[in-house]
Design a protein around this nucleic acid. Structure first.
Length: 580
RNA sequence: GUCCCCGUAGUUCAGCUGGAUAGAACAAUCGCCUCCUAAGCGAUAGGUCGGCCGUUCAAAUCGGCCCGGGGACGCCA
C-alpha cells in the first residue's frame, strides 16, 4: 500500500503532465499548511506554469478538470486557491478504509521498503579508556533509532560499535593496572570508577617520569602482543565494556557483544592497507610519515592537507583503521550503505577518508558512505560542555537522576500505586524523557545541556506521549466489552476525530523520509502531533456517553492511535506504559 | 589564513528539495476536574526569522557581502 502522499503525487502528477503535455511532472504534494486548505495541497502547478509561460490559475483549472473526469475514489474534491495551489480534500470513506486495514494488520502502519538493502550503522563507539559521559548520549540513541527504523522497513542492518580500545592511552592505564594487579589477583577496586582511574593514571603520567617511561614501554609490549600485557589489557577492556553494557541496558539500546567492531580488531589488516595504497601510488612520505595528499583538501596557509596513514614511528592512526573498516564493509559485509553516526567535528576526517577509500577502491563502487553528523553539546554559557570544576558529567549520573526525579513525580501523582510499580514506571519515564529530549532536536544543531530541560516531564516531552498512550489503554480497559479488534472505525462526526484519523495514516510518510535523510526528530514531531490530536479528540469526543455505533468507532480509532504511538515510540527506542 | 555549521518569541527549539497569515514547548496572565488519568485542554500576550543587497509571481528557506557565536585544519580519536 502506498502512502496518501504517494498516491496523490501520482494522481495529480499524471493530470498535470497531461494538461501540460509533458511526459512527467512533480505535483509537489505536501500536507496542507492549514486546515482550511484541505488535507493535502499540490504546489507543483505554479512551477510548471512558469516553465510553460502560462497563467498558473489557468493551468490549475485544466488540471482540476482533468482530475474531475478521472475515475478515483480517494479525493472528495479539488479546489484551486491563491496563485495556483490545488487544495485536496480526501473522502472520509477512503480514510476510514485505510485506517481499518491498519487496524486489521498493524504492520501496514509502516509498509516494508520495496527493495531491501544491507545497511551498516556505526554508532555509539565509546572510548573504552574512559567512562561514557553525557556527550555519548546523542550518537548512541540517534544511531539506535535509525537502526530500528531501517529494520522496521525490512532492511538488513549490521550494527557496528566501533569502540576505541587501542592506542597510546592504554599503555598508561595498563602500567597502572600492572602495579595494582601484582599485589592481588582480583580486579582492582579502583576500576569501579573508570573516570577516576583514568585521571589518576594521566596525572601520574604527566608528573612521574618513571611512570611515563613504564607507560610507553607498555605500549610497545602491547604492540608486540606480549602475553602478560595482553591479558591485562583484555581484563581492562572487559571491565570497561561492562560499564558500557550497564548503560546500554538502562537505555534499552540494542547494541550487544556481537555488534562490537573494536579498533584493535583491525590491527593485523593495517599493513595491508598501506601496501594497497602504495601500489596505487597514492602514498607520499612527508616528514617521515606516510600520507595521501588529495588536491581538494587544503589546511593552514593553503598547505596541502595530508591524510596520515602511517606515523613516522611506524604506527597507525584512526584513518587507517577506518579505511580497513570500509574495505570490510564494502567487500565482506557487501553493504549498500555505510552510515557513521558521529560528532560533526569529525566531518573533515570522514570527507578525507571517504575520498581516499573511493579513489583507492577500498570502498566498492556500490557502497554509499554517509557521515550522519550531530552537533556538539554546549554548556549554558554557549561554550563546549563542562561542569564548573571543568569535568564532564557521567552519562550514568544523568540517567539515574532522571529516574529518581520521575519516581518523585509518580509518587506525587499516583500514591496509590505500589512502590515496585512506581519504580518500574519511573525507570521507563526517566529514561524516555532523557532520550526524547535529545532525539526531538535536529541532530545537526549544537545544543545546550541543561538539567531542567533534559529532565522536563511537561509539554513536548516523552511523558506527554506516554501519557496519551496510557490514557488510551485506560479507556480500552474500561470499555473492554467493545474495545476488542472486532470493532472498526465506521464514521467521523467531529473535526477533532477526522484530524486524528488522517494523522494516523501518516506515520509511514515520516518513516520513509527518515530512512533517507536520518532525522529522527521528525518522528518525535509527528508523534507529538499525533498525541496532541488525540488529546483534543479526547476532550471533545466522549466515548462513555456516546451512542453505540459512534462509541465503537471512537474506541477503534483510539485503538489505532495507541498502536501507532507504540510503534512510533518503539522506533525511537522508547517503551510504552500501560498506566502511569 | 582556508573550510564547515549556526543566528527564528524572554528561554529552549521546530520549520530550510522556495509556497498561502512563521509554529511548539517552557516561563507569564486568565479560564476548565458532579464527565473515559489535570503529566491534560482552552484562551491571552509575546517576532524588523542577525543585517544589507540580489534571484523569483512567491524567500526564514536559494545566491552574494557584512556582523556575531561554535567547530575543523600532520603524526590523538
Amino acid at each position: 500500500m502506498k502512502t496518501l502522499k504517494q498516491d496523490l503525487n501520482n494522481l495529480i502528477g499524471d493530470a498535470l503532465a497531461s494538461s501540460a503535455n509533458m511526459s512527467s511532472c512533480n505535483a509537489n504534494v505536501i500536507t496542507a499548511s492549514k486546515p482550511g486548505f484541505g488535507d493535502y495541497q499540490a504546489n507543483g502547478v505554479m512551477a510548471i506554469a512558469k516553465q510553460l509561460n502560462v497563467k498558473p490559475q489557468e493551468l490549475a483549472k485544466l488540471v482540476q478538470d482533468h482530475l474531475e473526469t478521472r475515475e478515483q475514489e480517494l479525493v472528495e474534491r479539488f479546489e484551486i486557491a491563491g496563485p495556483g495551489f490545488i487544495n485536496i480534500f480526501l473522502r472520509d470513506s477512503q480514510l476510514i478504509k485505510r485506517a481499518n486495514s491498519m487496524l486489521a494488520n498493524p504492520d501496514l502502519l509502516v509498509p516494508k521498503a520495496e527493495s531491501p538493502q544491507i545497511i551498516v550503522v556505526d554508532y555509539s563507539s565509546p572510548n573504552l579508556a574512559k567512562e561514557m559521559h553525557v556527550g555519548h548520549l546523542r550518537g548512541t540513541i540517534i544511531g539506535d533509532s535509525l537502526v530500528r527504523i531501517f529494520e522496521r522497513l525490512g532492511h538488513k542492518v549490521i550494527r557496528q560499535n566501533h569502540v576505541g580500545d587501542w592506542g597510546t592511552q592504554f599503555g598508561m592505564l595498563i602500567a597502572c593496572m600492572r602495579e595494582l594487579t601484582t599485589e592481588h589477583d582480583a580486579l582492582p577496586n579502583e576500576l569501579t570508577d573508570l573516570e577516576e582511574f583514568y585521571k589518576a593514571a594521566k596525572q601520574r603520567f604527566d608528573s612521574d617520569p618513571d611512570f611515563a617511561a613504564s607507560a610507553r614501554s607498555s605500549v610497545v609490549k602491547l604492540q608486540s602482543k606480549d602475553a602478560e600485557y595482553m591479558a591485562i589489557w583484555e581484563q581492562f577492556i572487559e571491565e570497561s565494556m561492562h560499564h558500557c553494557e550497564a548503560i546500554y541496558e538502562k537505555l534499552k539500546v540494542t547494541l550487544n557483544r556481537e555488534d562490537l567492531d573494536a579498533e584493535s580488531s583491525y590491527n593485523d589488516d593495517l599493513p595491508e592497507i598501506v601496501r594497497l595504497l602504495a601500489s596505487k601510488e597514492l602514498l607520499t612520505k612527508s616528514d617521515g610519515a606516510m600520507c595521501v595528499f588529495l588536491p581538494e583538501f587544503v589546511g593552514k596557509n593553503n598547505d596541502p592537507l595530508p591524510v596520515i596513514i602511517q606515523k613516522s614511528d611506524g604506527s597507525y592512526l584512526y584513518s587507517t583503521t577506518d579505511l580497513a573498516a570500509i574495505k570490510l564493509r564494502s567487500y565482506e559485509l557487501k553493504a549498500d550503505r555505510s552510515i557513521y553516526v558521529v560528532d560533526v567535528r569529525q566531518s573533515l576526517h570522514f570527507q578525507q577518508v571517504f575520498a581516499v577509500a573511493k579513489l583507492s577502491g577500498l570502498a566498492s563502487s556500490a557502497i554509499s558512505l554517509e557521515h550522519i553528523s550531530y552537533g556538539t553539546m554546549m554548556g549554558k554559557d554557549g561554550k563546549p560542555f563542562k561542569t564548573r570544576s571543568g569535568e564532564t558529567i557521567k552519562l550514568i549520573e544523568l540517567l539515574d537522576e532522571s529516574v529518581q526525579r520521575a519516581f518523585t513525580l509518580v509518587t506525587d501523582k499516583n500514591p496509590q500505586f505500589s512502590e515496585s510499580e512506581r519504580q518500574q514506571i519511573a525507570a521507563k519515564i526517566g529514561i524516555a524523557a532523557v532520550k526524547y529530549a535529545d532525539l526531538s532536536k535536529n541532530r545537526t544543531s549544537n545544543y545546550i545541556f541543561d538539567w531542567s530541560s533534559m529532565l522536563s516531564f511537561e509539554g513536548n516531552t516523552a511523558p506527554y506521549l506516554l501519557y496519551a498512550y496510557a490514557r488510551i489503554k485506560s479507556i480500552l480497559r474500561k470499555h473492554q466489552e467493545i474495545a476488542d479488534d472486532r470493532y472498526l472505525i465506521t464514521l467521523v462526526s467531529e473535526p477533532e476525530e477526522r484530524v486524528l484519523l488522517v494523522k494516523n495514516l501518516q506515520l509511514t510518510e515520516i518513516i520513509h523520509a527518515i530512512a533517507t535523510d536520518c532525522y529522527p526528530n521528525h518522528l518525535c514531531n509527528y508523534l507529538y502531533e499525533l498525541a496532541g490530536s488525540f488529546m483534543r479528540f479526547y476532550e471533545t469526543c466522549p466515548m462513555l456517553k456516546a451512542e453505540t455505533p459512534l462509541k465503537e468507532s471512537r474506541l477503534a480509532l483510539s485503538r489505532l492511535t495507541a498502536e501507532n504511538l507504540q510503534q512510533g515510540l518503539h522506533l525511537l527506542g522508547i517503551e510504552t506504559l500501560e498506566k502511569m
